[in-house]
Design a protein around this nucleic acid. Structure first.
Lengths: 166, 166
DNA sequence: ATGCGATAGTTGTAGCAACAACCAATGAGG
DNA sequence: CCTCATTGGTTGTTGCTACAACTATCGCAT
């Protein structure tokens, strides 16, 4: 296929689409770092570490099977395994075999972990407000839900991750 | 300050806000990986590497000063320096001192780099379409621009990065 | 003309994630 | 009852980025 054919066949972005894309790409690039550095500075936690602890804090008995926790946090098992191991080393999480399925591992939030989430949550929410939520009108909040919902339908067509179920 | 005070003083997210936040967090987590793995598979480039080459391809003389390229790509100088060095090693970019300011370095896209961008762009745009653009209505595209624009006003208040200027 | 603060960029290190490979347990199908 | 594909999770390696530290140059103020 000649390059001309490729050029003609490609559905390039319109100016409006390109504008939206470039801005979304900038948010994808910049927002995680802001979340990460606030939590790192205030709580010595990465954003994903915080999210793991937060999801456990909301679970029955503050316990989740690793596969379920991976779904809640949009993560792969290898990644979660490494992170939970580090959190266990720091005393925020404990792991134990699942009585119902000996292949499975359960992760439970410890008291120290609960304290860490409790102490970290206000600062994290304040950062989320400052950089995203309070920058938007209530209409835009609704639009953001619908837009990200539509994107997640493409990213997670099987509904494997929890965010598709909100 | 007692925890009770912290709880009372914290402006927690409303259900609508929380829904939007959780979905946005999922997109932040999942979308970069999809962009990254398509480019890695098809062009052996990271998403940020592709973006650097793409920004150079659009510049006068396919050349930008490193500070300007960092602004175009929402990156820090140390990060950009590492990435451009790797791209130079692969022959896609060349660097040379800036004649106007001997502190500065210019980066220019090579012919091989131009070929690489040209070959990679259709696949990248197709991925952007599949996972984001074609999931949205024209109204939602406009909303996404406004929403991400508002967020970028918070993330980049000085307008340092190029995406604020779209 | 000089001093010095700011700018431009590079370099090195440590930590984190993607990916591949692996192993143990489960359950479906024959 | 047995086989084997699938599931659940761990581990190790490699590559990338955040951050700190550094050096050279510029331009402003005195």
């Amino acid at each position: 296929m000649a390059w001309n054919d490729v050029v003609m066949d490609t559905r390039w972005l319109t100016p409006d689409e390109l504008n939206a894309w470039v801005r979304l790409a900038a948010v994808l690039e910049l927002l995680p770092g802001v979340l990460e550095s606030q939590l790192r500075r205030d709580a010595d936690l990465g954003h994903f570490e915080y999210y793991v602890l937060a999801m456990l804090s909301e679970a029955d008995q503050k316990t989740l099977r690793m596969t379920a926790l991976a779904q809640m946090t949009n993560a792969t098992l290898p990644r979660l395994s490494h992170v939970v191991q580090r959190l266990e080393t720091r005393g925020f999480v404990e792991r134990f075999p699942c009585p119902e399925d000996r292949r499975a591992t359960n992760a439970r939030l410890t008291d120290a972990g609960w304290e860490k989430v409790k102490d970290s949550a206000p600062g994290h929410v304040a950062t989320a407000r400052e950089y995203v939520i309070d920058a938007l009108t209530p209409e835009q909040i609704t639009q953001l839900s619908e837009i990200t919902g539509a994107i997640l339908t493409r990213l997670d067509p099987g509904g494997h991750f929890a965010a598709r179920r909100t």
